[in-house]
């Protein structure tokens, strides 16, 4: 059997794949955080809870309405995004004139409420969600076994990330968005409804979290606390990448997922902490983040 540094190749490839999967979620989640931060200047602490809501939405669409994974893929992000719009309109919009830390505290509180409510309803045990039929099974690539669903997650996540990049960097709507990030008052004076844009941006960022939740549902179990620890890792990812660029968020997300996966092979004790260690090192040498600008 082929070995690299004394580890069998299929083991390395297997962890690399898991790393890419985790990286897909890191990328989607940090992308949503970056989009929201760009315009609203707040860090959305509710992001982990909204990721969890996406998974639950998929679960309910399947079990209550009989709508399969593909419907959930389209509808669940809209549902989660809609709850985000309500949160923004009712609460976040009152805080824009205050210190940004209040936005962090508010979204932290909302996350506690949502996670507490789901835990109260569904307990801490996970609910199963099966892989859609079309994507079950896998292919033997010779050096490793590649489950179809996992390949789909990586491709879909990359696709969504690139589409988001395209919308923001290459379309008229994206141009408005970037302009409003630079100078909201000026954009408003050109007759663009900036408050509505802010609301929709928050909804969009949250919908990305919901979409990540749908994709995660068949891989991890649907669990009220599935986003609670993930969001802390995603914060570290965001600090490492810096929130300046869309591509930066995507590259950092996938890259760190892979590094985490490889750490599991070569030094499993550190696999939980490696991302935080990298954060510490990046802070020492490039405090603005790899892709950030001062």
């Amino acid at each position: 059997m082929t070995e690299i540094f004394g580890k069998p190749l299929p083991v390395i490839m297997g962890q690399l794949l898991i790393g890419l999967i985790n990286g897909s979620f890191y990328a989607l989640l940090s992308l949503g955080l970056a989009v929201i931060f760009g315009l609203l200047n707040i860090i959305n602490f509710t992001h982990g809870a909204q990721y969890m809501m996406g998974a639950f939405a998929a679960y309910f669409l399947l079990n209550k309405l009989g709508l399969n994974y593909w419907w959930a893929f389209a509808i669940a992000p809209l549902i989660v995004g809609a709850t985000g719009v309500v949160i923004e309109r009712l609460m976040l919009s009152r805080l824009y004139k205050l210190d940004h830390l209040y936005g962090l505290l508010l979204t932290f509180g909302i996350a506690l409420i949502i996670q507490g409510a789901f835990r109260h309803e569904f307990g801490s045990a996970g609910l199963p969600y099966s892989i859609p039929e079309e994507l079950s099974g896998g292919n033997n690539l010779g050096f490793m076994f590649l489950p179809k669903y996992r390949a789909w997650v990586i491709v879909a996540s990359l696709g969504v990330c690139i589409a988001t990049w395209f919308i923001i960097e290459r379309t008229r709507l994206g141009a408005y968005l970037r302009a409003a990030t630079e100078n909201p008052a000026m954009v408003q004076s050109f007759g663009i409804n900036v408050p509505r844009m802010i609301t929709l941006t928050y909804g969009f960022g949250v919908a990305l979290a919901g979409l990540a939740g749908v994709m995660a549902a068949p891989i991890y179990q649907v669990n009220p606390l599935m986003g609670a620890d993930t969001i802390i890792v995603v914060f570290a990812v965001v600090v490492i990448g810096g929130m300046g660029s869309i591509m930066g968020a995507v590259v950092t997300g996938f890259g760190l997922g892979v590094i985490e996966g490889l750490t599991k092979v070569f030094y499993p004790e550190a696999s939980n902490t490696v991302i935080f260690v990298i954060m510490a090192i990046v802070l020492m040498f490039r405090p603005q983040g790899l892709f950030g600008s001062r």
């Binding site: 609460m91 508010l106 509180g109 909302i110 409420i113 507490g116 109260h120």
Partner: peptide, 11 residues
């Protein structure tokens, strides 16, 4: 419920 109450106090 304790978590929910904490969150509500935050909000």
């Amino acid at each position: 419920w304790f978590t929910i109450t904490q969150g509500a106090i935050f909000v």
